[in-house]
Amino acid sequence: MNTRYRCPNCKTNRTRFNIVEQVVSAVKLNPDTGEIVERYDTMEQAGPFHAHYNGPDRRIQCASCGLIEDEKTFAKYGEQ
């Protein structure tokens, strides 16, 4: 991972960031209690009405101002 970042919000931070690794868990909840009724190991088990997660695997947080965005946003500003 040799990507230069710069915060698009505070525009000065180029060194201090938090890398947030996102882990997706497909679940079915009890609508009354919010408890997990079932966990799905694969999306095929979840069935046709369960949408696949298509968001980023990683997000970046500026450790100066707290902005959290997609990694591409920070990398694009880091090129400048």
Rank of each mutant, 00 (worst) to 15 (best):
F74R: 02
M43T: 04
K28F: 03
Q22P: 04
K72R: 11
T33V: 06
K11Y: 04
E44T: 11
L67E: 12
E35M: 06
G47C: 07
A46E: 00
F74K: 03
Q45H: 06
G47H: 02
T42G: 03
L29C: 03
Y53I: 10
N30F: 02
G55N: 11
H52P: 07
S25H: 15
G47Q: 02
R58G: 05
K72G: 07
C10M: 10
T33K: 00
I19L: 14
D70C: 12
I68V: 15
T73G: 02
I36Q: 04
K28A: 11
Q22R: 15
N54E: 13
E35K: 08
L29H: 00
N13V: 07
T3S: 12
S25L: 14
N30V: 06
D41W: 03
K28H: 04
H52A: 13
R6G: 04
I19C: 07
C65D: 13
V24W: 01
C7I: 03
G66V: 08
H52W: 06
D70R: 15
K11I: 05
F17P: 01
S64P: 01
V23H: 11
Q45G: 05
A26V: 09
A63Q: 12
Y40A: 01
M43G: 04
P31I: 01
V23M: 04
V20L: 15
G66N: 09
A51V: 12
A63H: 13
Y5L: 15
V27P: 00
T73A: 13
E38P: 00
R58N: 11
T33A: 05
V27Y: 00
L67W: 06
C10N: 08
G34C: 01
R6A: 13
Y40E: 00
S64H: 10
E69V: 10
V27L: 09
E35H: 05
R14D: 07
D57Y: 11
V20M: 12
K28L: 08
G55L: 07
V24Q: 12
A51L: 12
G34F: 00
D57P: 10
A75M: 06
D70K: 15
A46H: 01
F49G: 04
I68C: 10
G34D: 00
C10A: 08
R58K: 15
N30K: 03
